[in-house]
Amino acid sequence: MDMKIALNALSALSQQTRMEVFRLLVRAGDEGMLSGEIGEVLGVRQNTMSTNLAILLNAGLVRNERQGRSVRYFADFEGIRSLLAFLLEDCCGGQPERCGPLLDEIAFAC
């Protein structure tokens, strides 16, 4: 991942609704959620939700699949992994043992 892509992803997450959508889709896991369901859970109008989902999609943090007339959204775990790898690329100044607690916390949360 390059700096521009990482900045785009972080920028996408810097807005409250998009952060809430992202976290909701991470919790939904492999099942994902229909766009309408996401809007209902978060109390966000359809057109506003569509805009926010498009920004997250463009940032590589979510992916979607068309299911008939509906669109199901999923957290893009590969995109998330790439962003985390970029952020932690030079972790702990060449002392990987210092990163252990951070990596354990991330792994535990999964």
Rank of each mutant, 00 (worst) to 15 (best):
I80S: 02
L24A: 06
A59W: 02
A59S: 10
G79I: 02
S11A: 13
L103A: 08
A28K: 13
D76I: 02
V41H: 13
L103Q: 06
I106Q: 07
V62D: 00
D2N: 15
V26D: 05
I106K: 06
E31N: 12
L56D: 00
E97Y: 07
Q16R: 14
M49T: 06
I106Y: 06
V71Q: 05
G29S: 14
G60I: 05
L87R: 08
G36F: 04
E31Y: 11
L56I: 03
E37P: 04
F74M: 08
L25V: 04
D104V: 02
N58Y: 08
R69K: 12
D30F: 12
G94R: 03
M3H: 10
L103Y: 08
R18L: 00
N64F: 12
A54D: 09
A107V: 11
V26H: 08
R98A: 08
P101M: 10
T17H: 13
L42V: 02
I38H: 02
G68C: 05
Q46P: 04
R45G: 13
I55P: 00
R98S: 04
G43C: 05
L7Y: 03
R23Q: 12
R98Q: 12
E97H: 10
S11G: 14
Q46C: 05
L102F: 11
A59F: 03
L61C: 01
A54T: 07
L84F: 14
L42H: 05
P96Q: 13
A75K: 03
R45E: 15
R45F: 06
R69P: 00
N58P: 01
N52M: 04
M33I: 03
L83H: 03
Q46G: 04
L13I: 05
C99K: 06
L53T: 00
Q16T: 13
Q15L: 09
L25G: 01
V41W: 09
L34K: 13
S14C: 09
S70G: 08
T17G: 03
V26G: 04
L53I: 02
A9P: 01
C99A: 15
K4Q: 12
A6E: 06
F22Y: 09
M1H: 10
C91H: 07
G36E: 11
D30K: 15
L13A: 05
A12P: 00
